[in-house]
Computed example of a mutant assay.
Amino acid sequence: MKRFLTGTACTVLSFAFVGEAIATEWNVSVWGKRRAFTEHVEKLAELVSEKTNGEFTMNVSYGGLSKNRENLDGISIGAFEMAQFCAGYHRDKNPTITVLELPFLGVSNLEEEVAVSHAVYDHPAVQADLGRWNAKLLMTSPMPQYNIVGTGDPRDELSEFSGMRVRATGGLGQAFEAVGGVPTSVTATEAYNAMESGVVDTVAFAQHAHLSFRTIDIADWWTENLNPGTVNCPVVVNTDAYDSLSDEHRAALDESVPEAIDHYLANYAELIEKWESILDEKNVERVTVSDETISEFRSVAADPIREQWIKDMDAQGIPGQELYDLVQDTLKKTRGES
């Protein structure tokens, strides 16, 4: 009887050990607060947990694990398993994906943004680039074209951008600099204070960020059609953590990405529908920039910045022209063009 009980106890302990071994818990580092920009991360966590009966869970932390500019560093050392970051926060650490932040790239909607981002993420040079940080690109955080809010008199002519202090990162910052603007790359969480204190005159964001970080609350006007470009913000996972997943958990993660992106797109569409009423509610003037001004902006900013970017990439041994062509070819394919 003693031997039987001992054997039973061992069996129970063995099952307990196995149960503990197959449970997976990941920490995910994002910032700010839950908003349209993080809805795919939240949905991914929900889907993965559902598909694995709660055996694979994700704890999404809004600033509790790392500062947003340090998320890629945290991934590289395994401080957490998943993180979101924006390429423009540290262009030198992820030069390949900055192709997606070039001004006037031609992307016209979020579906196209998803397509070009994931095409670039799949390129071997890009995977090697992020591999230096032990990071595997999982999915993008698609954002619409940025527009600016500002205080004081509206700025709707190119000459009025001269000397304008604007919160803009990456290629957007370069675009405004090309027409005489003074870009600053304060983080999203710092943008409201920078605008309120007069450190910047204007802030370039997508709609959700103007809401989440409250820049719309102190804005007098909004450019509804400037559309100079956007930023690219991937969600990455620590490569070692990804490789250590069981086949079942890895499949649950990979298969959930398209569903999470679809949820993000549907959620963002609802936000865009509400945007006009939000502008009315807050008495924000809509500023329509003329086609002539936009054309002039594009001629000054787009071609020179793109050509310089390709030269800079070539100097680093990165196939810049190939990556840019990949974006354009993907846009044509997505639109059904020959």
Rank of each mutant, 00 (worst) to 15 (best):
F85A: 12
N68K: 14
Q127T: 07
M82Y: 01
S66W: 00
D92G: 03
F104S: 01
G74Q: 00
M139D: 09
H118E: 11
A125P: 04
M139R: 08
P142G: 13
I75D: 01
G63A: 12
E55F: 02
L100V: 14
P103V: 00
L105V: 07
S141V: 14
Y146P: 03
L138C: 12
V120R: 02
P103K: 03
K93A: 03
V126H: 02
E55S: 07
M143D: 15
D73I: 06
V107G: 05
I77D: 10
E112M: 04
T140V: 08
K93N: 00
K93L: 02
S141M: 15
L110M: 14
G78N: 09
V116F: 07
R69H: 13
G78E: 09
A115Q: 05
K67V: 10
Y121W: 01
H118T: 07
L102A: 07
H118K: 08
Q84L: 15
P124H: 09
G64C: 02
M143K: 14
P124K: 05
E112Q: 12
V107S: 09
D92Y: 01
S117G: 07
E70N: 14
G54P: 01
L105M: 13
A87K: 13
T140L: 05
M58D: 02
F85P: 03
P103R: 02
F56C: 00
E55T: 08
G74P: 00
G63Y: 14
G63C: 13
L130M: 13
G131Q: 06
D92K: 09
P95G: 05
H118P: 00
